[in-house]
Amino acid sequence: MVLVLPLLTLFACIKPTPPATAEAGRTITVVSVADGAGVAATVDTPERFDSAVLAALSARGLSPELVQGQDTLAALSSARESSLRVRRLQGEFVDAMLLVETRPGFYAEMNGQYRWVVGVTLTLSSGASRPNQQVVFDVPVFLRYHHQREAEAVDAASGVVARRVAELVDDWLRSGG
């Protein structure tokens, strides 16, 4: 307890940096999908993952609108390249749009944990006339059990992905959105 109390006091004093904020009521369309290795269909990302991404956007004053449904998934299943997907979606959503693409893949078992790698591409589009902003990265995640598969891997990556979404949107807002 001698060590714990001063540490807790120290943590309580740390103030996080405030995020960039958008003009009030500005909406952003969010499309978030998962493509599993060897799986033909593109599927929606898990609910907790979506919630983390939407919360990162809401914290910046944006009004995110999550688009889901078979039509969107079918359109994205037939085109796996991010640029093609964005072009198809831009036809439907004229204002700001965030496309979150995840690619969970099993890596190996390590020291009793199942290591997965979730490849992520974030594409932020402000319309066809402006260049897209894009970041591509991998998130290694460790799952405890064999029955935890693609959905759980994407779910486990949600914290890191939400943070990267926040960074991307902060840059976008600071550069004039």
């Binding site: 493509d35 599993g36 290795a37 060897g38 593109t42 690619r103 890596y107």
Partner: peptide, 15 residues
């Protein structure tokens, strides 16, 4: 422990 994986032919989503 350090594990290295070299993907020679990568698994492609949907393939």
């Amino acid at each position: 422990a350090l594990e290295l994986r070299q993907s020679i032919l990568e698994r492609k989503p949907g393939s």
